[in-house]
Each structure stands twice: as C-alpha cells, then as structure tokens.
Design a binder for these strands. Structure first.
Lengths: 119, 119
DNA sequence: TAAATATATGAACAATCATTCATATGAAGG
DNA sequence: CCTTCATATGAATGATTGTTCATATATTTA
C-alpha cells in the first residue's frame, strides 16, 4: 500500500483508497432502493400536481380530478402510490374522502427541485 | 357565489372557489414537466449511488464503475443523464475524465428523502 | 334495502427506461 | 502515425409504469 510501484499492469487507474473510503459512506442497498422509490414518486407530473394542490389545500378525489382535468380513476391510482409512500394521508367525511399531505418534507423536496431547475 | 343554494344537481361536490385558488398557485405545465424530469433522475438506484459517491469525492468513470460494480457503459449512460440535468460537471485530466457535483441542491434533496424514509 | 354517489381496484396496452453489446471517438505515448 | 487507454454512443431488449375501461366496494339517502 505504501509502495506505489506498479508490479504489473493491473490497477493502472483504480484508486483503491478513494474507492474504499467512498464505499464506507454508502448506505445499504435496501435503503438506496427505498430512496429511489421515493423519488420515483416525485418523478411524475400528475403526482407532482397532486402534491402541489395538497400543499395549498386538502381536497377530495373528485375535486382533484377536476382541478387536474383528469379521470377519477387515474387520480385514485396515483393517490394509491402517494399513500403507499406515506406522502399523503386521508380521512373520510360522509361519502367523500379527503386527502392531505403527511409531512413537511414534501414541500422541502419540491422547493429544492424548483431551485435547481430555475438556475 | 354568495348564494349557496344548488339550483340543479350540477356541482354537488365541486368546490369551485378552492379549485380556482389552487389553480392560481400551480406553476406552468412546462415547469412541472421539468421538475418531474429532475426527480426522475433521482428515481434510479444507480444514479443515486453515483451521486452519493460524488458527494464524497470527485471520480473518473472507470473508478465509478469499479465502486458500483457495474459496466463502464452503463455508468457512462447514466452520467450522460446526470450531465443533461446539470447535476454533475466534468473536467478532463490527461486521458481520464473526472466527474463531480455541480451544486448543493443534490445533497439537500437526498437528505430530505433520507429523512422521509427513516420515520 | 334499493338506488345513488364517491372512491378503489384489476387487467390490458402503449410508452418509457436501464442495461448490454458492439463499436466509435478522442487523447497520449512510443 | 499507429496503438493503447478512457470514455461515449447507438441499437436492441426486457422490465417498469401511467392511463383507460370496466367493475367492485362502501357510504348515504329515499
């Protein structure tokens, strides 16, 4: 390791020390997969729009469909995904079900994304 | 508007006032599309790993492939996407090309994602 | 309890995407 | 210049995904 001489032509440009250090700081694959899944949720315009709307006001499914000018079914499917990723919560009120955001990470993540693209 | 009486059975549960207010706060479709595209980039484990590595240290393509135990071609393709979205920059040094992060939004976005999934 | 309203869900299809393989480009050294 | 090393790129393919259509579930009201 201390001896930098290359005895054969393996590892010509692989910097093992950096690679080991970096590997140490890398979270488990399972966590990274979860993280990717979370960002996939933000990677669709329809879901972003839903989140944007809920950032402003809680809303029922039918109204969401109206605002976004989309099918009730399409909205329900997307709400399902947002629900699975714990980005939205819901409560029943009579016949309707009202959705709202679960936490403040949504707004931070969207804000940072906005800052990045507006540069 | 002031008169809440429903004259026929249109608009039984559409709350027009809320819808209009929410529509006003919604960015243009073009921007939302761009935002979705940005988050799509974070929605893939390989790209997240690349960003994680570069968060720790700038690195050449071959080393990235070693660290992530992936094909050089696969890494190059993903770097291309990261480049297009201005998340990474690069400089040439002799024969190798060294990639690094462009700005600090990357770390904020990843951090917030991490915070969200670890709850 | 039957009809109406609000939402959810399953299957299917088109579109998008990540990787692989083969090959191209481009710089450096002999 | 000709070879080698480092990276980029194009086409092909298998996998994933968003929407639609049809239908199911669940709550309220007549």
């Amino acid at each position: 390791m201390a001896d930098q001489k290359k005895e054969n032509n393996d590892f010509i440009h692989v910097h093992e020390d950096v690679i080991e250090r970096v590997n140490g700081s890398m979270p488990d694959d399972e966590i990274l997969y979860e993280l990717g899944d979370l960002f996939k949720v933000f990677g669709d315009t329809t879901r972003i729009k839903i989140l944007y709307v809920l950032l402003e006001s809680e809303m029922c499914v039918y109204d969401l469909a109206q605002v976004l000018n989309m099918t009730q079914s399409a909205i329900s499917h997307q709400l399902q995904i947002l629900k699975q990723n714990k980005l939205v919560k819901f409560r029943r009120e009579g016949k309707t079900i009202i959705y709202s955001l679960t936490d403040s990470h949504v707004s931070t993540i969207i804000d940072q994304g906005m800052e990045h693209i507006s540069e």
